[in-house]
Deep mutational scan, measured.
Amino acid sequence: MPSETPQAEVGPTGCPHRSGPHSAKGSLEKGSPEDKEAKEPLWIRPDAPSRCTWQLGRPASESPHHHTAPAKSPKILPDILKKIGDTPMVRINKIGKKFGLKCELLAKCEFFNAGGSVKDRISLRMIEDAERDGTLKPGDTIIEPTSGNTGIGLALAAAVRGYRCIIVMPEKMSSEKVDVLRALGAEIVRTPTNARFDSPESHVGVAWRLKNEIPNSHILDQYRNASNPLAHYDTTADEILQQCDGKLDMLVASVGTGGTITGIARKLKEKCPGCRIIGVDPEGSILAEPEELNQTEQTTYEVEGIGYDFIPTVLDRTVVDKWFKSNDEEAFTFARMLIAQEGLLCGGSAGSTVAVAVKAAQELQEGQRCVVILPDSVRNYMTKFLSDRWMLQKGFLKEEDLTEKKPWWWHLRVQELGLSAPLTVLPTITCGHTIEILREKGFDQAPVVDEAGVILGMVTLGNMLSSLLAGKVQPSDQVGKVIYKQFKQIRLTDTLGRLSHILEMDHFALVV
């Protein structure tokens, strides 16, 4: 994948999101292997301009796509893939009243899908469409860049269908997702969380590099694949309309690839034109409109599966009536509230959605109805927002919020430890010299600072030695090549209790 991002070429006709291997024109390309080798690009942008032909009021008969309808489940399912879809609609009884809503608040519980998330729908649909058009064949390999849930859905379907599955996901995604993927037989590649989507090191860039190296491999490409919004247009939206008897006044959905909100909203605009569509985008993402909503100094966020630093091709923002931004604290607070007060075992993005819903639905009156999409299960986040310690460490809970008995030293300040200034190293000294210094002084790690004293990161003896043994660096290389740029900081005025929580999850903390 090139470091400079080429513009994806656009073909003359058809839909841009065809499933299957992508040609340089962004659509299915038939021909000899030699032709494909000559024409197939190194990668295709996940934010390529959409060429979708959908228009409100256009006859369904003019759609270029294969459409399906929700099917009634048999008493005995032939395999677990038949437990994807037909998820329950559940009334939220307490939270709406707590925040003064007059309307009825309903939750579409997508964590009841077989793999635990709304992404099971698009995973199965992308595979079925690729099999139907002859792209996927027995023994082929599926590769997908994902925040985890699409990966789980694909790995689940691949396990049943017999495909090899490789999932490329950023490091910030939970260990629970990784464990589930491994249990399903998927191979996992992790990428830096802070890598831009168009960087060769991003999950998108690495996935395309693997595709170019592995024979008979395919990126189904949830960011561009029409099967993504079509899955929701054909099934999720129809289920909502049936469950609500066609009567709903507002739908609120958090947005990642945009397939969920695009597919549902398009069908609702056709069948229930008075329904307002509300999009939820986390602070630090750029999906919301108008652009002024996205202006923030924050560039990272903890909530998973929603928000991006690019506009995915499948996201149709014209069908969203209003956007709201959400933050991590309210997302996790509301997710825990949904679990504790409503018994809905949902993930953090569901918290984002409901946090926005109780604001947006203030305009609705008694007798009206708001539906929220709860995308995934708490299963993926047992060591994250479900953990009091994690919430404390991230600053989303305060010590006084917890009532468990603490040891005698818990409320003492870090400054009472009488710490001395640490050994520091410059980023320009060599790895070999740094190892000598650390061994001589008896230290395992040291902060790396520039000549102005600005902290650049941390270097550890173990990481340097393993990097040297693996051949990633040489003793003569500058130590700046092996620094940890993500590390926890703590102030002298913070409590030892807070430091204790940090050290339970990290090997060190830097006192500043």
Rank of each mutant, 00 (worst) to 15 (best):
S217C: 04
L181Y: 00
T193E: 10
D179Y: 13
K108L: 02
L210A: 04
P78M: 03
R190I: 04
Q222S: 01
S217N: 07
L77R: 07
G259I: 02
E270K: 10
S202R: 03
R51Q: 09
S202C: 02
R190G: 04
T235L: 11
I214V: 06
A24Y: 09
G139E: 01
G20W: 09
A265G: 13
N194Y: 11
G162R: 07
A253M: 07
L181D: 00
C165W: 01
L268I: 10
I166V: 15
T262K: 02
M89T: 08
G115H: 08
N93D: 10
R45N: 09
S23Y: 15
K267F: 12
I76G: 08
E144L: 02
T257E: 02
T141P: 09
E201C: 09
I127K: 07
F111H: 01
K137C: 04
M89E: 04
R45Y: 03
K102A: 13
E171C: 04
T68P: 12
E29F: 12
M169A: 06
P12A: 06
N216K: 09
D86M: 10
G263A: 00
S202Q: 07
A159C: 05
L42H: 08
R91G: 15
A69G: 07
I188Y: 02
I44H: 12
P33Q: 11
F112Q: 06
A237D: 08
G162E: 00
L124S: 12
G153S: 02
E187A: 08
S32G: 06
G85M: 05
S32M: 05
R266L: 00
S199P: 02
G205W: 15
T260F: 00
I142W: 01
C109M: 08
T150L: 01
G263F: 00
W54A: 06
Q242D: 12
S199R: 08
K25F: 08
E4T: 05
P88A: 06
C244E: 01
A155K: 01
S63L: 02
R164S: 14
V206T: 05
K30M: 10
P273I: 08
V118I: 06
M173W: 00
I261F: 02
G205F: 14
V118W: 06
L77H: 04
D238W: 08
M126C: 06
N212D: 12
H66N: 08
P192Y: 06
R91L: 05
E110K: 04
N93G: 04
A8S: 05
